[in-house]
Every structure is written in structure tokens, then in C-alpha cells.
Simulated scan of single mutants.
Amino acid sequence: MDVFVLEGWIYLAVFFLLLVIKIFAFANSLLYSAESYVAADRRNKTTWCAVLGVALLLQLAQLVLPLPLFFSIINFGMTIAALVYLADVRPALAGLRRR
């Protein structure tokens, strides 16, 4: 197997993994009420939904358009935002429901 073919498959796998993460984070952010975000002492629901929605749109745009490096760097930041949501905000919101 050629090294470049293997690199392409790895890139494709990472791309779709990040797409699934961003879809899950965005969909999950829509499930909680705006009051839950305030009660969990996190940014408001509008902010998180906007950030995660832009993250998802940028990931989908990479599927269709050849974006320049600038958008790849922004997409990397948006990936970090989605991971922060899943690691910090989501558990705080879920903890409110258990009480």
C-alpha cells in the first residue's frame, strides 16, 4: 500500500470522527434549556449553540470546498471548543438533571 493512500485514509477517518463529535456536541447543546446553562454557571445556551453550529458548518464546508489554511486553523479551534463542551459543559448540565 502506498504511503499517500494510507495517509488519505487516515485523514478521512479523522475527518469523519471530528464530524461525528461536532454533530453530537451541537445536538446535545440543543437539548438543555437556557436556564440549565445559567444554573450550571456556564456561558449561555445561545453562545454554545452558535459556537458549535459554526464548528459543524466549518467541518461540513471542508467536505465540499477546498478551504485555505486560515479556515483549517479556525476549524482546529472550533474542534477544541466542541471538546471543551463535551468534557466540561455537558457533564455540568447533566449533573443538574440528576439532582
Rank of each mutant, 00 (worst) to 15 (best):
M1L: 14
D2P: 15
V3D: 12
V3G: 11
F4A: 04
F4P: 00
F4G: 05
V5E: 05
V5A: 06
L6R: 13
L6K: 14
E7W: 04
W9Q: 12
W9H: 11
W9P: 11
W9K: 14
Y11F: 13
L12I: 12
L12Q: 03
L12G: 08
A13V: 10
A13M: 14
A13T: 13
A13L: 15
V14Y: 04
F15V: 01
F15Y: 15
F16Y: 15
F16N: 06
L18D: 03
L18A: 05
L18E: 02
V20T: 09
I21G: 04
K22H: 04
K22N: 00
K22W: 01
K22Y: 01
K22E: 07
K22I: 00
F24D: 11
A25C: 05
A25I: 02
A25N: 05
F26H: 08
A27K: 14
A27F: 12
S29C: 11
S29P: 07
S29V: 01
L30S: 05
L30W: 10
L31V: 15
Y32G: 02
A34H: 05
A34G: 13
E35R: 08
E35C: 03
S36P: 04
Y37L: 11
Y37M: 15
V38T: 12
V38R: 12
A40E: 13
A40Q: 11
A40P: 08
A40S: 11
D41E: 15
R42I: 06
N44A: 02
N44V: 02
N44W: 01
T47M: 13
T47C: 12
W48L: 03
W48N: 00
C49K: 07
A50M: 13
L52V: 04
G53I: 01
G53K: 00
G53V: 04
V54M: 10
L56H: 01
L57A: 15
L57I: 06
L58T: 04
L58V: 00
Q59T: 10
A61L: 09
A61V: 05
Q62I: 11
Q62M: 14
V64G: 04
V64F: 08
L65T: 14
P66W: 04
P66V: 04
L67K: 11
P68M: 03
F70E: 06
F71D: 10
S72Y: 06
S72H: 13
I74A: 15
F76C: 09
F76S: 10
G77N: 02
M78W: 02
M78T: 13
T79A: 06
T79R: 00
T79C: 03
I80D: 06
I80K: 10
A81P: 05
L83M: 09
L83T: 02
L83N: 02
L83W: 06
L83Q: 11
V84K: 06
Y85Q: 04
L86W: 03
A87S: 14
A87D: 12
V89C: 08
R90W: 11
R90I: 07
P91R: 09
P91N: 09
A92D: 15
A92Q: 15
L93Y: 04
A94F: 06
A94H: 12
A94G: 15
G95W: 00
L96R: 02
R97N: 14
R98G: 03
R99V: 06
R99A: 07
R99I: 08
